[in-house]
Design a protein around this nucleic acid. Sequence first.
DNA 1: TTTTGAGTTGTTCGA
DNA 2: GTCGAACAACTCAAA
Length: 472
Amino acid sequence: MAPATAIVWFRRDLRLGDNPALSGALAGHDRVVPVFILDPGLLRGRFPSPARAAFLHGCLRDLTRGVRERGGAMVVREGRPWVELPRLAREARACTVHWADDVSPYARARDGRVRTALERAGVEVVVHPGNFVAAVASIRTFQGRPYRVFTPFYRTWLTAPRRALLDAPEALAPPGRIRRGRLPALAALGALDPPQRLVEPGEDAARRAMAAWLDDGLARYAERHDRLAGGTSRLSPYLHFGCLSARELDAAMGRRRGSGAVAYRRQLCWRDFFAHVLLHHPESARRELQERYRSLEWDEDDELLDAWRAGRTGYPLVDAAMRELLSTGWMHNRARLVVGSFLTKDLHLDWRRGEEHFMRTLIDGDEASNNGNWQWIASVGADPAPYFRRLLSPVAQQRRHDPDGDYVRRWVPELGAVPDAHLAEPWRMTKEEQSDAGCILGHDYPNPIVDHATERERAIQRYRAAGGGVRR
DNA sequence: TTTTGAGTTGTTCGA
DNA sequence: GTCGAACAACTCAAA
């Protein structure tokens, strides 16, 4: 009898440890063919990203090496998955294809087409849990509905069943006589100009980063996570590409006591929550989850948008954050809120412009989390807190979360010699003080492009008008 | 069905 | 400089 062969389709679960699709394929099959498909629908799709393509490339190299060290061989194909997978199944004489579930509308439509094509070819499909802590698809309220508010979701999530952890396979069989394909050069992935590498890609690097974080950062997370100059785990790129298992990270958290572990775990829950929301409200990928805010009016102003993207708004914290994003592909979570509030409430530009810029630049760019957080800060998404809690003042936020100016001075060097007292509002310096600091406003650093106090009032008016009352 | 309790991350003002 | 109140009365989830 011919050996039973299964295919594992890697998508964004680029690891060997605690990988349900891989372990599932290995159980009951003599041979497993691991494949990654470079899908032009993603690489040149709605949110192409040189930064993420470069990180993905590194992760794939790492995964390929890990597979080879265990005696297997990674197969790489380029094309549409619903074409490539039936073809590969035929070549490899595979009877089953395994993959991990995902939540974005694109992923779900794609997986549906792939399933149809495979089943038509007589190949079985087995879908495994995606890279979330809990089963986000099946968490429900007592009335059987999906959640739209975080805290009740969180309470259910805390006690929701967790799947068993899985060891990495010790050995993989060689895939036999099939075309393996090659990982193309970076440029072919659209990664022409990747930002400086801040995060080392791959599963091994992810494990080291996780160990270091648990060892060193977690205990003080509750007090420090809002500090712009440090204090967060920076594990998000690994979670997005699945170099790190969210389930495993949560398990490590569950064994720990202390406010840091509790607070961090809550953040992991936000990731599951936004996946849950997008899964059950796929239309929110493109429009406001809250119906009454679909009529909100947004300005169109390319000059303001460009200034925001480039970090030339004249608000030091906003500019530092936007420049950090451009040069590293990452931004502190607190800073994401500040620049998000600034785009939508101070510049009155559509949150979708911000969502798109983030998706194109972030190495952790994740459709569910990014969309959910943008809708949250734009006050149009899943969350019932009053609108006046979401108009962040860039000046107040800078004073509170970067009191020594370490963050701002790092990313906005022209403000380097501006004293602490003026660093959040450099435009208040006299000519003489500007001269002393070597920073002439309007020359070395821009004047503020808008006045926060004025725009704040305008934002409130707009939300009030669109909301049909006072509510968010 | 109806009621009840509660809701990530703030800002500003005036005493 | 610090502190408490106002912002404004909505919607979701649970019972």
